[in-house]
């Protein structure tokens, strides 16, 4: 197959999680021709991508990159090139461009792919979660036209860069036309402390925490363990904690070594964002809470009482 990977770099460095795309492509066999199309980042950072050919569009202000510019650039790029499969990963720009491009070009589209199943002359099969994370479905996709895939975050390993440099072909980033929106202002609100998606340990609170003050204990524990602070939608909607801490389908997708949850029941919306954590520890007073089905260790206790004991014990051993 002729495969195109699409990578969006939000700053100068290579977006490391985009390298998950190449592990996904490895699952499809070893005889494919791989091309990469990269938007933004330093040109020098991308020449070692595991690709037979690399295309690169320089982006001036990547924080304020308009997805319509990427869409238009890709539309033009694809006018004289044909791919069987175009692979995106999950980020703001790709979430916009991948579906829009599929309608514009009349390509098939399947988001959140977590596994390749099989391929024959007429179709290719993939697995993706449905109904939050409660169920999975096997989808078959017609291969007579190009297929756009968006892979599910953290479902594939980050593939190491190649030792060899490939030639990087520069292309021009198109400007959006008047039939799209125009960005007037961009404001990034960085959450305090260690960033959620980079942390090895995440301490997270949900509905059971019950108050804004309750999150002070979580913050203290996060600091003690050198971890980041997360929250469920219930906690964010109650305004106990800023949205930037949201873990879940509509928030951050994380895969820390330890995901330590307090008062989170494990709704499918939330599980979507944390299910790839290596060790989940759940504290909940409800023994039937579904989070326990996904946890390595569980504690049945009032989360606000229990966290104080945990903090004290950690202080004792440090």
């Amino acid at each position: 197959m002729n495969i195109l990977s699409v990578i969006i770099n939000e700053n100068d460095d290579l977006n490391e999680s985009s390298l998950e795309i190449f592990s996904f492509i490895d699952q499809l066999g070893s005889t494919n021709k791989i091309s990469s199309l990269v938007f933004g980042g330093e040109k020098s950072a991308i020449s070692k991508l595991c690709s037979d050919e690399i295309f690169y569009a320089s982006v001036e202000n990547s924080e304020a990159l308009n997805p319509n510019n990427v869409l238009k650039t890709m539309d033009k790029f694809l006018s004289d090139k044909k791919f069987d499969l175009i692979v995106f990963q999950k980020d703001d720009i790709s979430n916009f461009v991948a579906p829009a491009l599929s309608f514009r070009k009349d390509f098939a589209y399947l988001p959140d792919v977590k596994k390749f199943v099989s391929k024959n002359e007429s179709e290719i099969k993939f697995v993706r979660p449905v109904h939050g994370e409660s169920a999975e479905a096997i989808y078959s996709v017609d291969i007579s036209s190009t297929i756009i895939i968006k892979i599910r975050k953290s479902s594939f390993e980050i593939k190491q860069l190649s030792k060899q440099n490939s030639i990087v072909n520069e292309i021009i980033l198109e400007e959006q036309d008047e039939n799209t929106f125009k960005i007037l202002e961009t404001e990034k609100v960085k959450s305090e402390g260690i960033q959620l998606d980079e942390a090895e340990i995440v301490i997270s609170g949900g509905r059971g925490i019950g108050s804004k003050e309750g999150f002070d204990n979580l913050k203290e524990l996060a600091e003690l363990l050198n971890g980041a602070l997360g929250a469920s939608r219930a906690a964010v909607e109650s305004e106990w904690i800023e949205t930037s801490h949201l873990v879940g389908l509509t928030g951050k997708w994380i895969s820390p070594n330890l995901y330590f949850t307090f008062g989170i029941s494990g709704a499918s919306q939330h599980l979507a964002g944390c299910i790839n954590s290596k060790n989940i520890v759940a504290v909940n007073k409800d023994p039937d809470a579904s989070i326990f089905n996904h946890s390595k260790f569980g504690v049945i206790a009032d989360c606000n009482d229990f966290i104080k004991e945990v903090i004290e014990e950690i202080k004792n051993i440090q």
Binding site: D92, I183, L184, S191
Partner: peptide, 11 residues
């Protein structure tokens, strides 16, 4: 947007 917001204009 991730970690923030944007003000945009559209017709």
């Amino acid at each position: 947007i991730t970690d923030g917001f944007q003000k945009v204009e559209s017709k």
